[in-house]
Design a protein around this nucleic acid. Structure first.
Length: 552
DNA sequence: CTCGTTACTTAGCATTTCTTGT
DNA sequence: ACAAGAAATGCTAAGTAACGAG
């Protein structure tokens, strides 16, 4: 029997790293692995309800270096002002040129210096990088404490520009196994204590603190490659697959409720329809001091415009203030319902479209239809099912004409800003295509001359070198190659333009059941490394042994 | 039921690293 | 050997959703 789950996750490289650094923590390991049998017993059966681990050992978190004074004074009414270190630190944050200079200095450093600095950094980080959970050494995701700075936020955030203050050990709660040594507070904070020490094995976090900007709890957790994360990720996809079995019934139920006399039922039905059909997010209520964004339940009248006979025009800012614009034909009853919801509201455009509804009620209703169902499951279901269908309908593999993930990214509205260099890249491609076309023209002249047994002309502006006297066949072959190059570049150009605002990575990380991809690779003899990066391979280690016939 | 709290996933963009063409 | 460009990773903000107290 394999040691606890270490065999089915992590690359050999990771394992090598692990074993080399294990020596240092050998003592702790011993203690942790001694309870292995308990851990196995827990995970073999169902374990205790809500229990995430039995033993947990880690070294806490790594704080950023304290601020180092530079002593440059700022002028106020022409006079230099004395600043306290704290004031100077904040004053330095908005000074763009100063930061540019720091960046420039770093660039100037030689390769060697950079490497040395990096190694030094890695040595410090090594200690915090790992946790031992139920006897297995796993990577910690975010062991570096977020440094202080000026808060930007996304979109029109009311708190933009606020100072995000430094996090200290006294802000930090540590969660760790009862028998594990409590990590020491860093000495630079001279005798400061952790805020609290907990031994809560019903949660997956190693440390937490309150974000000073939004007063929300933030957590230090294990990396996506960990078996704990892998397990929950797999469960997410299994739940989405279960929805597949329930979906006919769910659709029948909400279709029936489109004409319900109970107004709440009717709103739930229409909202569920939109979440199912358009993969909208649930839409929790938001505070005044957050950017004004919406999801399904928080849509306003102005966000959904009915265009007769049965089209809805959506236009609103969703998560991260990303604009959702879409125009879709809907069921006539849904169209009518939306018209009615809109006209019911006499407060105008800013009124809630689903005024009787919130995510609590919606999810409570979904739970009645399928155990564990909530709004977000529909996004996973929709994305994964779409990919599965795309990959299995196209028999003509490897044409490379279309990116199957694009469809999914568009459904989920995963967008990205057009890169600064996009236009430059496109014109460069154009240039190269023009060059190749010139080459082609010249080859054509050469060909007709060669056919008549003449030497090629050597007056080319492109190629000053004297040409070889090639046979017509050889020239034709060259022409075909050049043509193929041009066509490839034209295709590249099209896809590049097509995908310039589409973020393909988000769905790959969060919505697409990796087993679909792995199985497809197995069926088509495509190495999985071509599709998943190193970190995705680690994250999806649990999916690698899937049967080639797997369907979502 | 509502509200604040808690714990977790999902997200785009900045930064770093790798690859490629010269 | 190197710079430019592409790809990968890192960072942390911004969501979802469950839960418990009143």
């Amino acid at each position: 029997m394999a040691p606890p789950r270490s065999g089915d996750h992590g690359t050999s490289a990771i394992r090598e790293l692990v074993s080399s650094s294990l020596k240092k923590t050998n003592k702790m390991m011993k203690k942790a692995t001694n309870s292995k049998s308990i851990a196995e017993a827990a995970s073999a059966g169902h374990g205790e309800e809500g229990k995430k681990w039995t033993t947990l050992v880690h070294n806490g978190v790594l704080f950023p270096p304290l601020y180092k004074r530079h002593g440059v004074k700022i002028l106020y009414k022409g006079k230099p002002i004395n600043l306290t270190p704290e004031q100077e630190e904040v004053a330095t944050m908005p000074i763009y040129q100063w930061h540019q200079r720091v960046v420039e200095q770093r660039k100037q450093m030689s390769r060697k210096e950079k490497k040395a600095l990096k190694e030094e950094r890695e040595e410090i980080e090594e200690k915090f990088k790992w946790a031992i959970i139920d006897g297995v050494k796993e990577q910690v995701n975010n062991f570096k404490v977020e440094p202080p700075g000026l808060f930007r936020g996304r979109g029109e955030h009311p708190k933009m520009g606020r100072l995000k203050k430094r996090i200290r050990p006294s802000d930090m709660t540590i969660n760790i196994g009862k028998s594990a040594p409590v990590p020491e507070c860093p000495i630079i904070y001279g005798g400061e204590r952790w805020k609290e020490i907990r031994h809560d094995n019903t949660v997956a976090w190693l440390a937490c603190w309150k974000d000073p900007i939004n007063q929300k709890e933030k957590y230090v957790k294990l990396a996506p490659s960990s078996s704990l994360k892998g397990r929950t990720d797999k469960e997410k996809y299994e739940k989405a697959r279960k929805l597949k079995d329930y979906i006919p019934g769910i659709r029948a139920a909400y279709t029936k409720d489109f004409s319900s006399k109970d107004p709440l039922k009717k709103q739930i039905a229409v909202a569920t329809y939109l979440i199912d059909k358009l993969a909208l997010r649930a839409g929790n209520e938001k505070d005044e001091d957050e950017a004004e964004t919406v999801g399904c339940c928080t849509l306003k009248v102005e966000h959904v415009v009915p265009l007769p006979p049965n089209t809805l025009k959506f236009d609103f800012l969703g998560k991260d203030s990303i604009r959702y614009q879409n125009q879709v034909e809907v069921e006539p009853l849904v169209f009518k319902a939306i018209q009615q919801f809109r006209s019911d509201k006499n407060q105008g455009n800013n009124a809630d479209l689903f005024d009787l509804l919130d995510t609590n009620k919606l999810n409570a209703h979904l739970k009645e239809l399928m155990p564990g169902l909530s709004a977000k499951v529909f996004r996973t279901y929709n994305a994964s099912l779409t990919l599965d269908e795309m990959l299995n309908k196209k028999i003509s593999k490897g044409t490379g004409d279309d990116v199957p993930e694009k469809e999914v990214a568009i459904i989920c509205n995963h967008q990205r800003a057009v890169s600064k260099s996009h236009d430059a890249k496109m014109s460069k491609l154009d240039e190269k295509i023009e060059e190749l076309k010139d080459v082609l023209n010249e080859l054509e002249t050469d060909l007709s001359r060669a056919k008549k047994g003449k030497q090629p002309e050597s007056s080319s502006t492109i190629n000053k070198k004297r040409k070889r006297n090639l046979s017509p066949e050889a020239i034709e072959k060259k022409m075909a190659q050049t043509n193929a190059k041009i066509e490839k570049m034209e295709r590249d150009k099209l896809t590049k333009e097509d995908l310039k605002t589409v973020a393909l990575g988000t769905s790959k990380i969060n919505y697409l059941d990796p087993r679909i991809t792995v199985a497809w690779c197995k069926r088509n003899q495509v190495p999985i490394e071509k599709i998943f990066t190193k970190s995705l391979l680690a994250k999806f280690a649990w999916a690698m042994d899937v049967d080639p016939s797997y369907r979502f």
